[in-house]
Computed example of a mutant assay.
Amino acid sequence: MPRTSRLQDLIRMLRHHAEPIGGPELAERLGVTLRTLYQDIAALRAVGVEVVNAPGQGYVLPPEVTLPPATLAEPAPLEPAELTFYTNPLSRGGIVHWMLEELGVPYRTVTLEYGTTMKSPDYLALNPMGKVPAIRHGDVVVTEAAAICTYLADAFPEAGLAPPPAARGDYYRWLFFAAGPLEAALALTTLGVQPTVEQQRQLGCGDYWTVIETLAGVLEGRAYIAGTAFSAADVYVGTHLGWGMHFGTLPRRPEFVAYWEGLRQRPAHQRCEAYMAQVLAEA
Rank of each mutant, 00 (worst) to 15 (best):
R6P: 01
R6F: 12
R6H: 10
R12H: 09
M13L: 15
H17R: 14
E19Q: 14
E19D: 14
I21Q: 11
G23K: 13
E25M: 13
A27I: 08
E28T: 13
R29S: 06
R29H: 08
L30A: 04
L34N: 04
L37Y: 01
Q39D: 15
D40W: 02
V47Q: 05
V51Q: 00
V51R: 00
Q57W: 04
G58D: 08
Y59V: 00
L61A: 14
P63T: 14
L67K: 02
L67P: 00
A70T: 09
A76I: 06
P80M: 03
L83Y: 13
T84N: 08
F85I: 12
F85L: 11
Y86C: 11
T87E: 07
N88C: 12
P89I: 03
P89T: 03
G93W: 04
G94L: 05
G94K: 03
W98N: 01
E101C: 07
E101P: 05
G104F: 01
V105M: 01
V105E: 07
V110F: 05
L112S: 06
Y114M: 11
P121R: 11
P121E: 05
D122E: 15
Y123R: 09
A125G: 15
N127V: 13
M129F: 08
V132C: 10
A134Y: 07
R136E: 11
H137V: 10
V140H: 09
V141S: 05
A145F: 00
C149T: 15
A153K: 07
D154C: 02
F156Q: 03
P157H: 12
P157K: 08
W174A: 09
L175K: 00
G180R: 13
A185H: 12
L186S: 02
T190C: 09
T190I: 12
L191C: 06
E198R: 13
Q200L: 10
R201M: 08
C205K: 12
T210M: 03
V211I: 11
I212C: 05
I212S: 03
T214H: 06
T214W: 02
L215A: 06
L215D: 06
V218K: 13
L219I: 09
E220A: 14
A226Y: 10
A226E: 13
D234I: 00
D234W: 03
V237M: 10
L241H: 00
G242T: 00
M245Q: 11
M245E: 03
M245I: 13
G248L: 01
R253I: 01
P254K: 03
V257G: 01
A258W: 04
W260M: 00
E261C: 04
E261V: 05
P267R: 12
A268K: 13
E273N: 01
E273I: 04
M276Y: 10
V279E: 10
A281G: 15
E282T: 07
E282H: 07
A283R: 13
